[in-house]
Computed example of a mutant assay.
Amino acid sequence: MEKLFFIWFYFKVYPTFDLAGFLFDLDRSQANRWMHRLKPLLADALGAELALPKRKLTSIEEFVLAFPEVKQVILEGTEHPV
């Protein structure tokens, strides 16, 4: 049950692995492993019901079709130290 809640929480909040590890009493590397192991299981379970949103778009045209109400997009691609 804890792993199920972990993966639901991860996709709802998208915390860093440091925060996810802290909240679930895991090491950050273990939180990373859990996410990568549980993600396909969740996709299999929810994908059959078409309940997962699409996460990857491959073109601008695909973006426009997915989000026709969006008129302006701002991308910020600079990495900043935290």
Rank of each mutant, 00 (worst) to 15 (best):
F63E: 00
L46P: 01
R37L: 15
K54P: 00
T58W: 03
M1V: 05
L4W: 12
S29N: 12
I7R: 12
L26V: 01
E79I: 08
F63W: 07
A20W: 02
I7E: 01
V64S: 10
F22V: 02
E76P: 00
L65C: 03
D25H: 15
R28W: 02
F9R: 07
L46S: 02
L41M: 09
R28P: 13
W34Q: 03
F24I: 02
A48M: 06
S59R: 12
L23I: 09
L50P: 00
A66D: 08
A48S: 11
K56E: 06
E49H: 11
A20L: 05
I74M: 09
L65M: 06
D44K: 15
K39A: 11
L19A: 09
M1D: 10
A20E: 09
L65Q: 12
F17C: 05
A51I: 05
G77F: 07
F9P: 01
L50R: 15
R55T: 13
E79Y: 13
S59V: 11
E69H: 12
L23W: 07
H36E: 10
G21Y: 01
P81L: 05
T58E: 08
F17N: 04
F63M: 13
K56I: 11
R37E: 15
E69W: 04
F63T: 08
K71G: 05
W8F: 15
L38R: 10
D25M: 10
R28D: 10
E76N: 06
F5Q: 06
R28K: 08
H36F: 13
K3F: 02
V73R: 10
A43Q: 11
D18I: 06
A48T: 14
L42I: 03
G47K: 02
P81N: 05
K12W: 05
H36T: 14
K56F: 09
